[in-house]
Amino acid sequence: LEAKFDDSTIFKKIIDSFKDSVSQINFMCSESGIEAQAIDDSRVLLVSLSIPPSCFETYRCDRPTTVGVYLSSLSKLLKSASSSATLTLYVEDQPDELLLLFEESKASKSMEYKMKLVDITADMLEVDSDMKSDVSVEMSGVEFTKIVRDLTQLSDSFTVSVGKDGIVFSVDGETASGKVLLQPKEDLANPENNLSISMTKTIDLSFASKYLLDIIKASTLSNMISLKFSEETPALFEFKMEKGGGIGFYLAPKYDE
C-alpha cells in the first residue's frame, strides 16, 4: 500500500473521530480504497469507515492487505499532522509495520514514523450499508452537535422523534427536561444550514447519551450529518466527506421492556 494525503490533517481528523469509541481496528486496504469496521466494547456502537481513492492525492494498493492498529498509538503519531504537510502511508507486502511519512515541502522537512501492526481478531457484523429506513434526515452537523451537547447534560437518555411537525430531540432527566424542534428548511445562501426530512413512518427512538457524545466527535469531517432511523434496526449517523467516503456510526437503541 502506498497512499498519500495532500493534507495530513484529513487522516488525523478521521482517526480522532472514532478513537474514543473503539480501541483497535483492522483497516482493509484494497484497490477500491481503505475500509474498516469496528464495534465498541459494549457492542452498542458500530463504526464503519470508508476512505476511497478519491480522498488521496495518489493511491496504490497492489493486493488486498489488512492493517491492524491500536488507535491510541496511531493517534499519538498523528499529533504531528499539519495542513501544510502531506502524509503518505506505506505498508509492505508481508506487513508487520505501518510507515507514516509526513513531508512539508515549504519547510524542507520530513518526518517518518513506524508503527508495529497488531493481529486483531475482530467480529465482523453483516451490516447493510444501504439499509432501508423509515426516516432519513439531512441536517447541519454543527446544529446536531450543539443539540447533543446541550441536551445530553440533562439526562443519560436522548430521544429522537420524527413526525409531521419535524424532528424533535428531547431528554427527560431527574431534575430537568428539554426539547428542540426543527422543521425542514432550505437556505440557498448557506446550504449547510439546510434540513430535509423524508419519511414513510413516524419514529420515536431513545439512545444512550454517552454514545451520541462520541458520535459528534466526527462532525469535523463534514458540514452535514445524515441520520437514518427505523423501528427495527440500529440508527445510522453518517458524516460524508467532501472527497467521497466517510464515517457511519450504527447505534443500537434503548427500548422499553
Binding site: R43, L125, E232
Partner: peptide, 14 residues
C-alpha cells in the same frame, strides 16, 4: 426504565 440493546440483537456475525 429502558433496556439498552446491542448490535448482536440485530445483526449476524459474518
Amino acid at each position: 426504565e429502558k433496556t439498552q440493546f446491542t448490535m448482536d440483537d440485530f445483526y449476524e456475525l459474518i
